[in-house]
Simulated assay, not measured.
Amino acid sequence: MTEIRQRILEAAVRVFMRYGVGKTRMNDIAQETGIARPTLYASFKNKDEILSASILHYSDLSLAGIRHEWDHLDKLSEKLNVFYERAIIASYQIISASPDARDMIGGHNAVGKAATKTAQLDKISAWAELLDQHLPKDKLSSVTSEQLAEYIVLSSLGLRDHAESETQLRQLLEVQKQGILALLNCD
């Protein structure tokens, strides 16, 4: 990614959080970035493209950080904790801090929702890969690694979206973790 695209995405996220995706204009993003509108349009043809690129970029960064931490851990319980902190709790904190953050994280429109879906699928794929590598096949006899990966990601996001407080979210994620570990009969 070029430096200018990186700067635009960082600025766009700040503006989306400040005004919401719907109220943000390309001019707002250009001003926040400190560039002229033609320069902005040379990198992205419209706000939808910026929204999609922002969602995917920050999701990729989050997943890369999660994978990096996973590489240094052995226990599934520890890997679940990393995922919860970096993907679920971190996004809950962002949503809680800015009333318009849910607008961006949720995708706002069809283009954004497609990017959000891609980000979810990337996380599901990472989990399926991890489960395939680290769990004996007999521990996944009743479900596939892909099914369990989908459950981990989608149910965690559901807990995030419906929790009334960070404390409640942490408690619910702990219940989920204990259920997953019990299903797999591991720590």
Rank of each mutant, 00 (worst) to 15 (best):
residue 88 I to N: 05
residue 161 D to V: 04
residue 138 D to A: 09
residue 9 L to F: 02
residue 173 L to Q: 00
residue 12 A to W: 03
residue 62 S to Q: 15
residue 95 I to K: 10
residue 124 I to S: 02
residue 75 K to R: 14
residue 179 G to L: 08
residue 97 A to L: 01
residue 141 S to G: 03
residue 10 E to R: 08
residue 134 H to C: 13
residue 133 Q to V: 00
residue 91 S to G: 14
residue 132 D to W: 07
residue 118 T to E: 13
residue 7 R to W: 07
residue 104 M to R: 08
residue 172 L to H: 12
residue 46 N to R: 10
residue 116 T to I: 07
residue 50 I to H: 01
residue 143 V to Q: 10
residue 82 V to D: 08
residue 150 E to P: 02
residue 136 P to R: 10
residue 109 N to P: 00
residue 121 L to I: 12
residue 75 K to Y: 09
residue 154 L to C: 11
residue 12 A to M: 06
residue 128 A to V: 07
residue 95 I to Q: 05
residue 175 V to H: 06
residue 3 E to S: 11
residue 11 A to F: 06
residue 3 E to F: 12
residue 26 M to K: 07
residue 134 H to L: 15
residue 77 S to V: 12
residue 22 G to P: 09
residue 2 T to M: 12
residue 61 L to M: 13
residue 31 Q to T: 15
residue 179 G to E: 06
residue 46 N to D: 12
residue 169 L to N: 03
residue 184 L to S: 05
residue 116 T to M: 05
residue 161 D to H: 14
residue 159 L to C: 09
residue 148 L to K: 00
residue 185 N to G: 00
residue 42 A to H: 08
residue 156 S to K: 01
residue 183 L to C: 07
residue 36 A to H: 08
residue 138 D to Y: 11
residue 185 N to A: 09
residue 132 D to S: 15
residue 32 E to H: 09
residue 170 R to Q: 13
residue 129 E to I: 00
residue 38 P to I: 13
residue 162 H to D: 08
residue 91 S to A: 14
residue 168 Q to N: 12
residue 22 G to N: 06
residue 140 L to W: 01
residue 91 S to F: 08
residue 91 S to D: 12
residue 26 M to F: 03
residue 179 G to Y: 10
residue 27 N to C: 05
residue 120 Q to M: 14
residue 2 T to F: 11
residue 25 R to D: 03
residue 70 W to N: 03
residue 36 A to V: 13
residue 29 I to R: 02
residue 22 G to S: 04
residue 122 D to G: 05
residue 177 K to T: 10
residue 85 E to D: 12
residue 149 A to W: 00
residue 65 G to K: 13
residue 112 G to F: 01
